[in-house]
């Protein structure tokens, strides 16, 4: 992943004072032409993802497809079992009594949509990932507390250890800039 000229570095990590400073910084870094970067904050900040060029996640589509597949398969299973495989005469009701299949179809829709959403989140985010180069920076522990961070990867074509550091240090409300060991 690391760029050829700086094999020892994963990237740069800048810390900011506040959520608003992180939003501004993300915009400025994007406008400067960087593409491989990410924000890190103790709680979600939608504007950072917007500035990163990730205006819409895939989760909605994943869950919709998961839910539809679950509901369809569920309904077909109920129909096949009750009509074809194991027809039971219950109080003279028709074998294909579809309205009686709705509750289970609904439950399977919710279950499969939820499971696919969670699996989708983990898969798309590449989690579980217990090790990440960012964890090498001690200050990064504040990303789950009160720190707002912006990381720029060395894999970014525009990345250069010295000039990127200088650029990040020039951003408003920056607290510190550290190199992230690979």
């Amino acid at each position: 992943m690391s760029a050829p000229e700086t094999p020892q570095t994963w990237g740069m990590l800048a810390e900011f004072d506040s959520a608003d400073a992180l939003i501004t910084a993300t915009r400025k870094v994007r406008e400067a032409g960087y593409t491989k970067m990410d924000g890190h904050s103790p709680y979600p900040i939608g504007e950072v993802a917007d500035e990163l060029g990730f205006p819409r996640s895939e989760i909605g589509a994943v869950m919709f497809i998961g839910g539809m597949v679950g509901a369809t398969m569920g309904f077909l299973m109920l129909t096949w079992v009750s009509w074809v495989e194991y027809p039971l005469n219950i109080a003279g009701k028709p074998y294909f009594s579809w309205s009686m299949f709705i509750p289970i179809t609904w439950e399977l829709l919710v279950l499969s949509a939820s499971v696919s959403g969670v699996v989708g989140l983990l898969a798309l985010c590449g989690l579980p990932m217990p090790y990440h180069p960012l964890f090498n920076v001690p200050a990064f522990a504040r990303a789950t507390k009160d720190g707002f961070f912006l990381s720029v990867e060395a894999a970014d074509p525009k990345f250069d250890a010295d000039s990127t550091r200088a650029f990040l240090l020039g951003l408003p409300d920056v607290k510190s800039v550290e190199e992230v060991p690979a």
Partner: peptide, 30 residues
Amino acid sequence: MGWRGSAMHWRRYEKLYLLLAGLGTPLVFS
């Protein structure tokens, strides 16, 4: 699971959270 507060992850996370809430609401009634 290696959560690092990434803005990209948060975006997906919040969508999932909202949709689970949206599914949970009719689920509890059902």
